[in-house]
Design a protein around this nucleic acid. Structure first.
Lengths: 219, 219
DNA sequence: AATATTATCGACAAAAATGTCAATAGCGCA
DNA sequence: TGCGCTATTGACATTTTTGTCGATAATATT
């Protein structure tokens, strides 16, 4: 009676790999790195654990592959947001998007895990670096363009501010993604404040910092 | 010849536990959570793995214990720094110390791991919350004291700024501890800049933000 | 329709990690 | 010095995780 044979699904290698990786990502999000046992992942994917091994060679291979794909997707997502930045408009939106990307999708957890494991992405580095440099240059140019002093020294100062602002935005976004909820609780921010007002406030702070009128750090 | 029996050391239970926990912390720092197998930890501690089990009951017990002690030590360290803050002097020093604590000792890694696992500290919460609230109140009071407007509305505004500044400092410190090196590389900061100038710049930014003259976020 | 290919599976094997236990050896104490 | 307590240990047992292999079934190809 109960011995119904479930028809086995046969995917293309690419589909199968993608399917399994999706299951692994789900486990990582829900249970952290401890949830990345082959058996568990196979269960979520609905396949035999030997199938997983078949496609990735080994458990380690699967995890490496997972870091690689997720890491690159994260970079691409952020890259896309920054690229889409309207040249003249306020940068607020960009920063808010970055915060959202890092907090909502468990991406910060991935980053944290990667940092813990010690290995980094393989791809996308050059592109990412390049983008950051362009971004910084643009920010500096925006500052320079609205002020009188356009000397070499002024450029250096503007670039410095742009680099530091970018760094601050980045570390804040990562920290917020990983421990934002936790810290907000300690500090006494409601969830709404932490995810809304606070980010807007921060965004405005950065903007005002980049405006030359407010350069009191030049002492 | 070579079968020298090493004399076995016998510690008090407290000493033994502390010794083993230290070894575990070392493994966590060097190899991340994957380095927390009892065999490895026992090897570092120079004891048999059954000794570890004897003192902590189980592998899970050891790890729980480790999170607890390290977490509380981290909180205490930060607490100590904030407490030692001279009331009238600049807050720069405090922030810099917090950054150092989180980056230097692998503390941020611990935090990251805890966030990944999903469990938090057991103790110290109330004290920490209390301290944060006092800190925020003091910051707000400092702002209010040097300005004319001391209405209830002004207080609310000052507290808000203080809370947000604290939140920003916290997430930035955590993010820097976890991914600072990585991000600095992307953004083009030298190690020296990232650990020195950047932090000072950030500290000054926060200070200037808390000064009422520079409140442009009140629009 | 027959055949080749290979993704999938289950059962088994190996390895790794955790846990158990009786014997041993330091250390305090009488 | 002798004795009791127990931290420590190695050998063994159990559980968990990973890896292997032949058989099977779904799909493409002829």
């Amino acid at each position: 009676m109960t011995d119904i044979k479930k028809k086995r699904v046969r995917r293309s290698p690419e589909e199968a790999r993608a399917h399994i990786l999706a299951a692994a990502a789900e486990r990582l999000k829900s249970d952290g790195p401890d949830g990345l046992q082959v058996k568990e992942i196979a269960a979520v994917a609905g396949v035999a654990h030997s199938t997983v091994l078949h496609h990735f060679g080994s458990a380690a291979g699967l995890r490496t592959e997972l870091v690689d794909t997720m890491g690159n997707k994260l970079l691409e997502d952020i890259l896309a947001v920054i690229k889409s930045r309207p040249a003249t408009e306020a940068d607020d939106e960009v920063l808010l998007h970055v915060f959202e990307i890092l907090s909502d999708e468990g991406h910060a957890r991935l980053l944290a895990w990667m940092m813990l494991k010690g290995d980094h992405f393989s791809d996308g580095n050059a592109q990412m670096k390049d983008l950051f440099h362009r971004l910084i240059e643009e920010m500096a140019a925006a500052v320079i363009s609205v002020q009188d002093d356009q000397s070499e020294k002024a450029w250096r100062s503007a670039r410095r501010a742009a680099r530091f602002s970018t760094m601050l935005a980045a570390v804040a976004a990562v920290g917020d993604g990983i421990a934002g909820e936790f810290l907000a609780n300690y500090i006494g921010l409601t969830e709404k404040e932490a995810q809304g007002d606070f980010r807007i406030w921060f965004s405005e702070l950065l903007n005002s910092q980049m405006k030359p009128e407010a350069d009191e750090a030049s002492s």
